[in-house]
Amino acid sequence: MLEARLEQANLLKKVVDAIKDLVQDCNFDCNDSGIALQAMDNSHVALVSMMLKSESFSPFRCDRNIALGINLTSLTKVLRCAANEDILTLKAEDAPDVVNLVFESAESDRLSEYDIKLMDIDQEHLGIPETEYAATISMPSAEFQKICRDLMALSESVSIECTKEGVKFACSGDIGSGSVTLRSHTNVEKPQLNVEIDLSEPVALTFSLKYLVNFCKASGLSEQVRLCLSNEVPLLVEYALSNNSYLRFYLAPKIGD
């Protein structure tokens, strides 16, 4: 039996909105630590890993592990019926064939209830090892989104190069080339605008901008984004949520032929 109550439907609406163009059918794995999701896009180039810790819900109850196989297009249609401030409760029996969603609006005494039919999704699960990354960049998520969008106008790939001078996003294409260089920066009044670069060794990798722009749909979830890079391993783009919850994207690098 699962019962998970979110103070604001907005959190789940934004998470699903951020990943629905990358993955279609996902298992929401529910257990006593919370609700997790891991899914790859069809080309196996990008992976999304979401964790909504039980602390994000109140109350949260999950007696045994339940995998809720849900089509994100269907979930989006139902979540559209919830107002951002509605209280959202997810419910499911053990071995369920539907997941139940209840939306309550505090002031107008309105209660909506929806059932979504579940799917049997046989999804391969990738083991992602804890990694000591050579470079970790924490920066405003809106800034990263702008860089990716701007450079995507010139090229389909971006090289990200981290040295002790800073981090350089560079690209070149048919019309020419462009680059954006950031250095560590502290904004005392607005720490959410800080740029922090931790570097243990220089890193240079190339990635597809189409995927990075897609990941940036999550920018509304967190003011800061964390980029983790090491040579020859996938990029980690992490949007931290409250209560140690997170939305993470992994992207395989492009390598020169």
Partner: peptide, 14 residues
């Protein structure tokens, strides 16, 4: 042009 790697080459199914 550069070849796009896949995640399966980095992360194995546990």
């Amino acid at each position: 042009p550069t070849r796009q790697d896949m995640l399966d080459e980095f992360y194995k199914d546990p």
